[in-house]
Design a protein around this nucleic acid. Structure first.
Lengths: 236, 236
DNA sequence: GGGCCTGTGTTAGCCAGCCAACAATCGAGC
DNA sequence: GCTCGATTGTTGGCTGGCTAACACAGGCCC
């Protein structure tokens, strides 16, 4: 399912040339190193981002400093959907989960341009739907499924978005994403490694048996991936 | 926070008269008895609904027959946002949680009309954002907070939408909504009752101490309610 | 080499909520 | 009054994940 290696963002790539031209002059290339914060809850929005490569996490923070991931966004989408929906400040946090690069434009420019771009509008509506579906499934999955299943699902979803079998990822980090303790991930990831599905050393993880991993994940993975395929043409 | 008793749907009420006229001829009044199914996952969408009264639940079903609620919709919103976003089939289930009434119009009519109604478009974008925020917070809350807190939160959110201190609700039903076992609700609800915050008899629940209930709920309630207030002008 | 930081493995005790089952109570209908 | 179904209360055993530590290994810098 992964591998095709698109160099560009899928939404931008799908735009008719006149609309892309309209955007182009306001787009700034931007490098996205791991852990870079793009948004923080309640803060005003400055930019929206289109990834060419890499993965961004949306997380919901709690008062006690912990947070739970509610959606992931890669080159298939746009980071900053709330701006499209009319927000001026962010409802959740977002940060770079797997390093990459892309382009951004100011929220003001985006708001100005969006009115003149029917295709972009249409694409973003559909992407918004895919994102909502992902959040809904994640909500239910978080509530119900065992850590090992969710762990496998998360690895698959990230795999779909990085176009590589190996990527940087510590257990500590994964624990934060899943909203669980690090030792729990240690056990779950250990099981997956023992089963020969993945391997990892000091912050780098490798997907060995993609199919096996799909079998180990809860069905939520396929539900989300199918929905993305229907709505935006790609599993992630 | 509840009580004002609007007889009409807030989104419809906020429309300029020309846009409302455009909708009006396609609106059919509809009664919404408890447990009526409005949508089922993967089925084609036939209608979108605007509630004047009552509460609808969106739930994500699992293969094993259980399901988890991911959002609630009352007279403040529209049931069928996925149609607005371009879906032709439903990603989740939806059914009537507290009986009420409203109007509906066919998905086709809705799609035809929406293009000619900039205000409706704008209102629905903002409502979509509020719904996403609710889902995100729910996802994180489901993962993290104790049953008693979530139970209190759920009662408050429903309270905001029914405009009455008493409404029908069994523990069995509440357990399904929270995605937990019924005995767990029995305990949690028992605690809230013992603390004098609520009372219930055989399927009818009464909110006695609204403030106390807010104190017993997790902060998620206020986060969601504040967001709704900012975006659509009402706590629920 | 030695110190140190980061990442991983593991342990032991604890607790919330699970599962399965059964008891008690109320209301409606006969 | 009696039966029956729907609703609520409660119990006991089980377990997944949590809390709180501690041990160890690899890599980097001095």
């Amino acid at each position: 399912m992964p591998q095709p290696q698109p160099a560009t963002n899928q939404i931008l790539a799908a735009l008719p040339s006149d609309e892309f031209e309209r955007l182009a002059r306001d787009l700034q290339p931007i490098d996205l190193p791991t852990r870079m914060d793009l948004y923080e809850r309640s803060n005003p929005v400055e930019f929206v981002y289109f990834l060419h490569r890499g993965v961004v996490s949306m997380t919901t923070p709690f008062d006690n400093g912990t947070s739970v991931e509610i959606a992931t966004i890669g080159p298939e989408g746009m980071v900053g959907i709330p701006v499209f929906l009319g927000a001026d400040r962010m409802p959740s946090n977002a940060f770079v989960q797997v390093a990459g690069h892309g382009v951004r434009l100011s929220a003001d420019a985006f708001r100005r341009i969006i009115a003149m771009c029917p295709s972009l509008n249409h694409l973003l509506l559909r992407y918004t739907l895919a994102l909502m579906d992902q959040m809904a499934q994640t909500a239910a999955c978080n509530r119900t499924h065992a850590i090992e299943e969710r762990c496998a699902r998360w690895l698959l979803m990230t795999h779909d978005r990085v176009y590589a079998n190996e990527f940087p990822l510590t257990q500590e980090f994964l624990a934060q994403m899943l909203g669980v303790r690090r030792p729990s991930v240690s056990i779950a990831a250990g099981m997956l490694a023992k089963a020969g599905l993945i391997s990892y050393v000091r912050g780098r993880i490798t997907i060995i048996d993609r199919e096996g991993l799909e079998a180990a994940a809860c069905n939520c993975y396929h539900i989300i991936a199918d929905e993305f395929r229907r709505l935006v043409g790609k599993p992630g």
